[in-house]
């Protein structure tokens, strides 16, 4: 592998994976704590109709209309879920199931009926993304990597994602207190005069933003994995929210790098030349990390809990 290959093929893919994982993973902490983990699932499924609608209205596959379409669809979906849950007095899981499957179906019908499927939009791509197509063209080696000319050709997804990730990180730092108290105790937050409903709406919008930004590179399923697995892993390891946020970022980065490396270079270990789906592999690595945490976490892991239970039994007077 040459430096040029690494810089133009692997590095951008790894960075995109890491940034997607980080932005979704950070927000996932609040989704998991708010018992809204599956909102991420619903939102990433409804991005499909949004993208198709964006394409149909704008007539191009330029990023901006597609992202806007997906954002609008996500916000509509979140609103519909809330309306159906309240007005229909349905459990939120059922309300979510109704909304996201219906919108997904609309997306598929639109796709097939309008011929959008011929214009580089296809549902399978939307489901599992195409990380490998993120290329940094115009870079030939380490020497010219930092020149203005090379940097100006950085892949567009990478720049979008970097911006979104930075925005999310800034938002969480700036509104850390407000997010924390409204997640823990909405009643107290309201009595402190915080706009609790606005905070949850903004959170959903930002979740949609992160999902959409990550979406075209890594696909909806990896987005869901990143909303949940890093946060869930960190949740097993600590009892402090700030530490949990840092740990989730760490898990997201490890999963992003590890998953990509395994997918791209893993097959060579058993003599295969083809690479595997990086997005899928990243989800698998995140799942393995979470499994490890669930089993072996120092305090809340299954092993240590079993050991504690055992010693407590031994402590009891016979």
């Amino acid at each position: 592998m040459t430096a040029a290959d690494f810089l133009s093929i692997d590095l951008p893919a790894i960075l995109v994976a890491v940034l997607s994982a980080t932005s979704c993973g950070l927000l996932g902490n609040f989704l998991v704590l708010r018992r809204q983990a599956l909102i991420g699932d619903a939102i990433s499924h409804v991005a499909l109709p949004g993208i198709v609608a964006g394409f149909l209205i704008a007539g191009t596959i330029a990023t901006l209309p597609l992202m806007l379409g997906a954002m609008v669809a996500a916000v509509i979906a979140a609103g519909l879920i809330e309306i159906i849950r309240r007005a229909g007095r349905l459990e939120s899981g059922a309300a979510m199931g109704v909304v996201f499957t219906t919108m997904f179906a609309i997306g598929i019908v639109l796709l097939e009926q309008t011929g959008a499927s011929n214009a580089h939009i296809d549902a399978e791509h939307a489901l599992y993304g195409n990380l490998e197509s993120t290329l940094w063209l115009g870079v030939t080696g380490w020497d010219d990597a930092l020149t203005w000319e090379a940097l100006s050709q950085l892949p567009r997804q990478l720049i979008t994602l970097a911006g979104v990730t930075a925005a999310i990180a800034i938002m969480i730092v700036a509104f850390y207190k407000e997010l924390k108290v409204s997640t823990f105790d909405a009643g107290l937050a309201a009595s402190l005069g915080l706009p609790v409903r606005t905070i949850s709406t903004v959170l959903i919008v930002v979740v949609a933003l992160a999902a959409v930004a990550a979406f075209e590179a890594v696909g909806s399923i990896l987005v869901i994995a990143m909303f949940i697995c890093p946060a869930a892993t960190a949740r097993m390891l600590t009892d402090s929210l700030s530490r949990q946020l840092w740990l989730s970022v760490l898990v997201a980065v490890i999963a992003g790098v590890g998953g990509y490396v395994l997918a791209a270079f893993g097959p060579q270990f058993w003599g295969d030349t083809d690479s595997l789906s990086a997005a899928g592999m990243i989800a698998v690595v995140a799942g393995l990390l979470q499994t490890a945490a669930m089993i072996a976490a120092p305090r809340y892991g299954i092993l240590s809990r079993a050991i504690r239970r055992r010693t407590r039994q031994l402590d009891l007077p016979a």
């Binding site: 998991v32 697995c229 869930a232 899928g280 989800a283 809340y300």
Partner: peptide, 30 residues
């Protein structure tokens, strides 16, 4: 057996299993 609630469990399973499925499909394609 863990402190994670059911919705997080569902999300974990669906995304990780699906990810594994995609990895296998990408192998089948070759």
């Amino acid at each position: 057996y863990t402190r994670l609630p059911e919705d997080a469990a569902i999300g974990t399973v669906l995304s990780v299993f699906f990810g594994l499925g995609i990895v296998l499909l990408s192998h089948i394609q070759t």
